[in-house]
Nucleic acid binder design. Structure first.
Lengths: 107, 107
DNA sequence: CGACGATATAGAGAAGTGTCAATGTGCTGT
DNA sequence: ACAGCACATTGACACTTCTCTATATCGTCG
């Protein structure tokens, strides 16, 4: 974990662009093809392709061909890894911060 | 939430640099001064100051003067917001993805 | 006050990013 | 085979990012 800063930084860089973050959030509702995603943005098709490549190569998003279409979906493992990254940060907190964190737990 | 992509993208951009991500993780053990942080990296003092400014201005990190020193600490609210961002993404998943997510829950 | 230690700012340069128009590639019907 | 649609790649450009050296500011102590 402590040694994976490079991987996490890559994930976060992939999501640090507002367009890509929106796309990632869109994919939380399930698999989508590029054409569906493109309709939601005021960007050209090559620009979307560029963003999808970054998301795919980072490992955050999986892609597969379905005939003429490319279908994209969230890679669960990378999403869980990101959650653990931020969850672990709270767990390491000192007592002052911990009391604040406890009040934020919502189960 | 759905409208805050700009804020989240800013948070993620601030953490998308490996140095800044390490610093953020270091701060999870509690408040640190710039001099303590600087010792852990092979960068110059102005470069660290540049990174701390990005972390502070994004809202992820709080800063205060303590005599000659600047003390930095994690802003809990922004950290919790980041956790919710990723937690909400799983919650929106369809049944196929949900079954995968359940298997990853570790309580 | 004046010197010093800690941090911030300015300026510059190399490298990276996001966008587009133009073009290439791959699949599917006819 | 070939025409057409979906998507990828290329090349170019403006803009941003990260790093440094040099210099400024701020707070403390004698």
């Amino acid at each position: 974990m402590k040694e994976d800063y490079g991987v996490y930084a890559m994930y976060l860089k992939a999501l640090s662009d507002e367009t890509r973050l929106k796309i990632f959030d869109m994919l939380s509702d399930g698999e989508l093809c590029a054409c569906d995603i493109l309709e939601e943005f005021n960007i050209t098709q090559p620009t979307l392709s560029y963003h999808m490549k970054i998301l795919s190569e980072s490992g955050l998003v999986d892609s597969r061909r379905d005939g003429v279409w490319m279908k994209y979906s969230i890679n669960i493992k990378s999403l869980e890894a990101l959650k653990q990254l931020f969850d672990n940060i709270t767990l390491n907190m000192d007592s002052t911060s911990l009391s604040l964190s406890f009040s934020a737990i919502k189960y």
